[in-house]
């Protein structure tokens, strides 16, 4: 057995700021994970389908354009439709504290706000991924 954590890092919506997503992708790789980076402008449907085909353990969503409520929630909704709520959904970007409870209610397990060390994110993933 040599299980590796598989992570889909995705940029939903039209936002082009991918510095954070790419830094996280690298940090996950350096922590021994397999990272599937989807690139920009992904619809929630594309992201979920990618996660299913790639058998991802985690979906990391990043958005800085303010469209997180719609996009993140839609990803979670689609995962439920596909009976794939076991996939851990986490998010980051410019996300006001006020919006976090609604996102968590929608199914995002954890929202990381700006300034979160990548180590913290890695540790969170390792601790919360379903085996």
């Amino acid at each position: 057995m040599n299980k590796k954590i598989r992570v889909v890092i995705a940029k939903p919506g039209l936002d082009g700021h991918d510095r954070g997503a790419k830094v996280i992708a690298r940090a996950c790789r350096d922590a021994g994970m397999e990272v599937i980076y989807t690139g920009l402008r992904q619809t929630p449907e594309q992201i979920v389908e990618t996660a299913l085909q790639e058998d991802a353990d985690v979906i990391g969503l990043s958005s800085l354009s303010g469209a997180h409520e719609h996009l993140f929630s839609r990803v979670c909704e689609l995962l439920r439709e596909k009976n794939a709520e076991d996939i851990l959904v986490i998010g980051g970007g410019v996300i006001p504290e006020d919006d976090i409870p609604a996102l968590e209610k929608a199914g995002v397990k954890k929202v990381f706000t700006p300034g979160t060390p990548t180590k913290e994110i890695i540790e969170y993933i390792k601790a919360n991924v379903k085996k």
């Binding site: 919506g13 402008r41 619809t43």
Partner: peptide, 22 residues
């Protein structure tokens, strides 16, 4: 906003959630 910057009208499916945001 992003739909304008990427050449989509506000009623385009990809514009959902992005209209008027940035």
């Amino acid at each position: 906003d992003l739909p304008t910057q990427i050449g989509y009208d506000s009623d385009h499916p990809l514009a959902q959630g992005e209209v008027g945001k940035v």
